[in-house]
Amino acid sequence: NITNLCPFDEVFNATRFASVYAWNRKRISNCVADYSVLYNFAPFFAFKCYGVSPTKLNDLCFTNVYADSFVIRGNEVSQIAPGQTGNIADYNYKLPDDFTGCVIAWNSNKLDSKVGGNYNYLYRLFRKSNLKPFERDISTEIYQAGNKPCNGVAGFNCYFPLRSYGFRPTYGVGHQPYRVVVLSFELLHAPATVCGPKKST
């Protein structure tokens, strides 16, 4: 009989979020998941679920829940969905086509923008091939755009693969920082350890 609540607040209220190319993952297990707390949290810009209804989450049990978190621009949030393409979905964070879970995003301009620009948040701009679902690539190898080998030196046709967002408070909404948490639900042939409040007695 599990009684402790799942530590969703640790994920959602973290002081610093990860850059999207180096997205953070927390495994959540052996706890009671009260999703209504999240669902009623006012400032969400997006709360979209795939393969599961957000209002039914509290009735369900899962083997594991993974909480992935990172920061992207407002106009990139739409790429955090199954079957998407674009710089983020291709080179930074890719969801599987059969994704079961929820994508939760909110504007973090007050936290993550600075006058003069916040350059701490990076994304991958160049990559030889697209990421596989949930693949994480933190390499900083110089990207070779031409035929000539770069030998690890940036220059003509040789690019550092990461780019900084440089968030400023005055940017338009599409270019403002958004914090994103992706909850993915794993249902294995194993005992369920993460259940909603109704199922955990």
Rank of each mutant, 00 (worst) to 15 (best):
A33K: 06
S129P: 09
F156N: 14
F156P: 15
D90A: 08
Q79K: 05
P177W: 05
T100G: 01
N75F: 08
V20N: 04
E186Y: 06
N4W: 06
Y171V: 14
Y165M: 05
V182N: 00
I142V: 13
T201F: 14
E135P: 01
W106T: 04
G117E: 09
A67I: 10
V32Q: 08
C61K: 14
A192R: 12
V77R: 05
R25Y: 00
T201G: 14
V180I: 08
F160Y: 14
A46L: 15
A145L: 10
D34N: 09
N40C: 05
C6T: 05
P96C: 00
N4P: 06
V20F: 01
K198A: 14
A89I: 02
N4E: 12
L122E: 15
S113W: 03
G86I: 06
N24V: 07
D90E: 08
P197E: 12
C49N: 00
N118Y: 06
A18V: 05
A18D: 08
I2E: 13
S36T: 12
P7T: 10
V32E: 08
A14Q: 14
V71P: 01
Y121D: 04
Q144F: 05
K128N: 12
F45A: 15
K132Y: 07
N58H: 10
V153L: 12
A42C: 03
P133H: 05
G174T: 12
V103D: 00
S184T: 15
T15V: 06
S108L: 02
L95F: 01
C150F: 05
S53C: 07
D90F: 04
A22T: 07
N64H: 13
K199S: 15
N64D: 09
Y50W: 13
G86C: 01
I28G: 03
V182R: 00
L122T: 15
N13R: 04
C150A: 06
G101I: 01
S113Q: 05
P82G: 02
Y39T: 14
F70P: 01
C6L: 01
F167V: 03
C49S: 00
S69C: 04
S78N: 12
P82S: 02
N75T: 10
V32W: 09
V71K: 01
I28S: 01
G155S: 11
K26G: 01
T55F: 11
C6V: 04
D59I: 03
R124E: 04
S36C: 03
L111N: 12
I104S: 00
V180K: 00
V173A: 13
L131E: 04
N109C: 08
Y91Q: 05
Y21I: 03
V182F: 01
L38I: 15
S113F: 03
I88F: 02
R168D: 15
W106R: 02
T3I: 06
F41C: 08
G51Y: 00
T55Y: 12
K114L: 10
R27A: 09
R124V: 03
D9G: 11
N75Y: 08
L122F: 13
Y93T: 01
C49L: 00
F185L: 06
E141P: 09
A89S: 07
L38V: 10
G152H: 10
T201Y: 13
C6H: 05
C102W: 00
G196S: 11
R168L: 10
P96Y: 00
F12M: 11
R163T: 12
A192Q: 12
Y121M: 09
A105L: 03
V103I: 07
K110N: 13
R16N: 14
